[in-house]
């Protein structure tokens, strides 16, 4: 036990925690993105609302979600601890420091980018996660005629069910759910919230352009064959594709809906 304690109190051990929590958060991004793509489906939000219910009520997902919240907090706390220790390692700063001559901008600004992301996460969770659980999310009823496949929807004033019901009545599939889709569509009519989300995704992009491959370097995975692949996934997958796809969502609601 003392060996473990000794490992995680060392600078390398703390870096290991940063790398592992960081990579875990990266895998979450992929899942979150795939789920959120339901927003683009033109079905009045049925698929998205089904997905929202599944994510908040399926036990294994709930367990992972608590692991996720813990990871965010641990990642931020260890970043703070390491940053303070690093400041202590150079109490008198240089009069002239040409950082841009020897290192990329992203790598030198992970703390600032991470802070922007933390603010974004707090805003994002209060917008949707808090609202869905304890806020005033409207209710919706979808009626799908199983013979024709036609779906109609009506807003429900109050719920006489708990969170979600789905049953078939006379060849019509009736789904009643919390309408998180409507909440999302409404939230992204506000221009400054859209701007904040796009800014958050820009920060995510720059954070991951350095962060993803950096985590593998910390873990010690260094290989002539695989490092270029890791770098490519880090830059194009996590640095470009994922933040762009996420940023497209608020923009879609603001300009197209």
């Amino acid at each position: 036990m003392s060996k473990l304690k000794n490992t995680f109190s060392s600078s390398l051990g703390k870096k290991l925690i940063m790398a592992l929590t960081g990579l875990f958060l990266c895998t979450f991004l992929v899942v979150h993105l795939i789920g959120n793509l339901q927003l683009f489906k033109a079905d009045g939000g049925k698929a998205f609302n089904d997905y929202a219910y599944f994510m908040t009520h399926f036990t294994p997902i709930k367990v992972v979600s608590y692991l996720l919240y813990t990871s965010i907090i641990v990642h931020a706390l260890y970043a703070l601890m390491l940053t303070l220790a690093n400041r202590k390692a150079r109490p008198v700063s240089y009069g002239a420091y040409a950082g841009s001559a020897n290192s990329p901008w992203t790598s030198r600004n992970m703390g600032i980018l991470g802070t922007v992301l933390l603010v974004f996460i707090v805003v994002h969770m209060s917008n949707f996660w808090y609202e869905y659980h304890w806020g005033k999310v409207p209710f919706v009823e979808y009626r799908t005629d199983l013979t024709t496949g036609q779906t109609t929807q009506t807003e429900l004033a109050a719920a006489d069910f708990k969170d979600y019901v789905k049953y078939i009545d006379n060849g019509v599939e009736i789904t009643r759910a919390k309408d998180l889709y409507a909440t999302t569509a409404f939230a992204f009519q506000t221009w400054w919230l859209v701007a904040l989300y796009v800014l958050g995704m820009a920060a995510l992009s720059f954070h991951l352009i350095h962060g993803f491959s950096s985590a593998f370097q910390t873990l010690g995975w260094d290989h002539k064959k695989y490092v270029p692949l890791i770098k490519m996934i880090g830059i194009w997958g996590f640095g470009v594709l994922i933040p762009l796809a996420f940023a497209a969502m608020p923009l879609y609601f603001f300009f197209c809906i």
């Binding site: 060392s10 600078s11 870096k15 690093n86 020897n102 290192s103 370097q217």
Partner: peptide
């Protein structure tokens, strides 16, 4: 590594400045 930490050096953030 233990001695490195004891001397009060900072930790690595993989900027690559050292290599450059």
């Amino acid at each position: 590594v233990a001695q490195m930490d004891e001397e009060g050096f900072g930790s690595c953030t993989n900027t690559g400045a050292c290599e450059a």
